[in-house]
């Protein structure tokens, strides 16, 4: 089977030229004269970098902030200068699964190199603004995002949401796909037949909304940080409380620190916390309480964003 060719794509409002196909990403339809912002290419990569990063075969950071990420037996990624993701597929099912890492942690690292905050959040557009549903792994971001998508919100990112924080906070849409485990899909009434299984061996699928995808950046209207409690509640945090809460939601912080951008990340987080409403959403992690949990976010976005008649 001959592999399809890559092409030019629109990812996080960048023109991405990839030698490998990115089927989940929107093709580039912007001006043809614009040179690519990012290049994704297959390459033979070394298994180590010379630099201050601590010796680990899984992760190395070079003196110039280049990052080599290595999932043993599967894939190596080299992310360089905020412009390049080089991909070395080692084996396993890397032929197709490499994108989970290049467009996951690889993209997070690229964001740090470009001074953009990768927020550990699912992004959804509603009424011209974006809400970021943030939380640690397993906190239920994607499941809540699916519920919101079923109620008319448009997903723009999953797992990680790129946010510009110099001046106006804007969400840069990646692609409209949510990664969900079978039990969450079943509970949401989604028919799994026809969904892409992300990896053989994992009951985890890619869900895409039927509606079209708008790749244009959207102002970040609110960040909602997920937490657990017996009863649902949505509370807006003070800027003082929002800063550490938001800081904890930045992806790849240890890598960013090794890259030497800790202070810049902290400054951007502080600026973001001062300008964007940050909420804490406490709720029981139960499928049968999803509707009332989603309703809290709906009420908030309606009150805050949609001007009352």
């Amino acid at each position: 089977m001959t592999e399809q060719k890559g092409g030019d794509y629109r990812l996080c409002d960048w023109r991405v030229r990839s030698t490998l196909p990115l089927p989940e990403v929107t093709p580039w339809t912007g001006e043809t004269a614009r040179p690519p912002d990012i290049v994704i290419a297959e390459a033979e990569l070394p298994d180590c970098l010379d630099g201050p990063g601590l010796p680990s075969r899984a992760l190395m950071v070079g003196r110039d902030g280049t990052v080599l990420l290595h999932i043993p037996g599967l894939v190596r990624l080299l992310v360089r200068a905020g412009r390049e993701i080089l991909v070395h597929r080692l084996g396993g099912d890397a032929e197709r699964s490499w994108r989970l890492f290049a467009l996951g942690p690889g993209l997070d690292i690229l964001c740090h190199q470009r001074a953009i905050l990768p927020l550990h959040a699912a992004g959804l557009r509603r009424a011209g603004k974006a809400v970021a549903i943030a939380g640690r792994r397993g906190s239920g971001k994607s499941t809540l995002a699916l519920t919101l998508a079923q109620r008319g919100y448009d997903p723009v990112s999953d797992d990680s949401t790129a946010v510009t924080a110099d001046g106006k906070a804007m969400v840069l849409p990646a692609y409209p796909r949510l990664k969900l485990w079978r039990p969450a899909l079943v509970a949401a009434g989604v028919d799994i037949e026809g969904l892409d299984r992300l990896r053989d061996g994992l009951e985890k699928y890619g869900w895409r909304p039927a509606a079209g995808f708008d790749p244009a950046p959207a102002p970040l209207g609110a960040v909602v940080i997920l937490d657990e409690a017996p009863e649902p509640s949505l509370i807006r945090l003070s800027p003082e409380a929002a800063r550490p809460a938001l800081h904890a939601q930045i992806c790849r912080q240890r890598i960013a620190t090794l890259m030497g951008c800790r202070d810049r990340v902290a400054a951007r987080v502080a600026a973001l916390a001062d300008t964007v409403p940050v909420y804490r959403l406490r709720r029981p992690k139960r499928f049968d309480r999803m509707a009332e949990t989603a309703a809290l976010i709906e009420d908030m976005t309606k009150t805050e964003w949609e001007v009352a008649p």
């Binding site: 992760l59 999932i71 990664k179 061996g201």
Partner: peptide, 13 residues
């Protein structure tokens, strides 16, 4: 420790 997400990884990985 590694700052690498594991949620899309297989058991061996």
């Amino acid at each position: 420790v590694l700052d690498i997400p594991t949620s899309d990884l297989l058991n061996d990985e």
